[in-house]
Simulated assay, not measured.
Amino acid sequence: MFGNLELTQFSIVIIARNNNPSILNPDFLKINQIVPQDWEISSPIFTTEEISQVTYKNKINIQVQTDRLIFNEAINNNNYQGLSANIAIKYLEVLPHVNYYALGINLISHIIADNSEEIDHYFGEYILRSGDWKKFKNIYPNPSFSFNYPFEDHTINISINPAKIKSETTDEYKSVILFSGNIHRDFSELGNLEKQRTEIKQFLNFWEKDLENYQNLINNCLLNRGE
């Protein structure tokens, strides 16, 4: 029997033109109050003209490239409180002159299965019809599926893959189904930097709705757990 859906990663990707990665460093982030003063670095930072990155002990990773900003947060105990979304909003407010024109919310979650046979049944009986594809020369294929839901003002992409994850308490590996999601919005047609930035900030403030839609899509449609 499958366990509950567990969110493990929440990432925000903001697409931009003419970004300047070289300004990213811990002092810049603290001086401009993008991150709290007491945050500690967890690994060596690097700053270049093409890509820069700062990683903190609370599992927040900030990366700036010439064409995008990435705010990534590893999630513990399925508990996301919008920390990376708040940091992204502050970053946009500090650098309002950059042409930010698209927003992606990337989410990774999984469900734990009792065994690999349960996962085989999910892919082979629920997602796909029965057929000869299931075995070729006594080999069962490694399935991978992608779904695209094109709404009027955004697109939801979901990919599903079987995987193994290591237990946090033992050396045991558990069989899981991995759900990788992307919610994409493009604001380039607005043609105004301030409007584009305002729209991006607005949707970042409503991250809870995107997370809810992602979880409902998986639970109610892809896992058929709807009431």
Rank of each mutant, 00 (worst) to 15 (best):
Q215I: 13
L103V: 11
F46M: 04
Y80C: 09
Q202W: 09
N213A: 12
V98P: 01
I89Q: 02
L69D: 06
V176A: 05
L222S: 07
N25K: 05
L92P: 01
K201L: 12
N32G: 03
S109P: 06
N192K: 11
N25V: 02
Q215C: 11
R225G: 12
N19K: 03
Y214S: 08
K195H: 08
A163D: 12
E49I: 10
R17Y: 09
L204G: 06
D186H: 14
D132T: 12
H97D: 15
Y122K: 03
F187W: 08
T48R: 07
L103T: 09
F145G: 09
Y214G: 13
Y56F: 15
I111M: 13
F187E: 07
K174I: 04
H184N: 14
L178G: 01
P162L: 02
N76V: 01
N79A: 04
K137V: 04
A88R: 00
V98C: 04
I183K: 02
I200T: 08
L107V: 12
N77D: 00
N220E: 14
T170N: 03
C221H: 13
I200Q: 05
L178K: 01
P44Y: 02
K209W: 08
T155Q: 14
V176Y: 01
T169D: 01
L178R: 00
L29Y: 01
S130H: 06
D171V: 01
H97T: 12
I41Q: 00
V94G: 06
N216K: 15
I45Y: 07
L7Y: 01
A102C: 14
E152R: 08
N220T: 15
W39M: 14
K195L: 15
L69V: 06
T169G: 00
Q202I: 06
F206G: 08
Q33L: 12
Y149Q: 13
E208A: 14
E6Y: 05
I12V: 13
V176C: 05
Q65C: 10
Y126V: 14
D210G: 13
P26E: 00
I111Y: 08
S144T: 04
Q33C: 11
F206R: 08
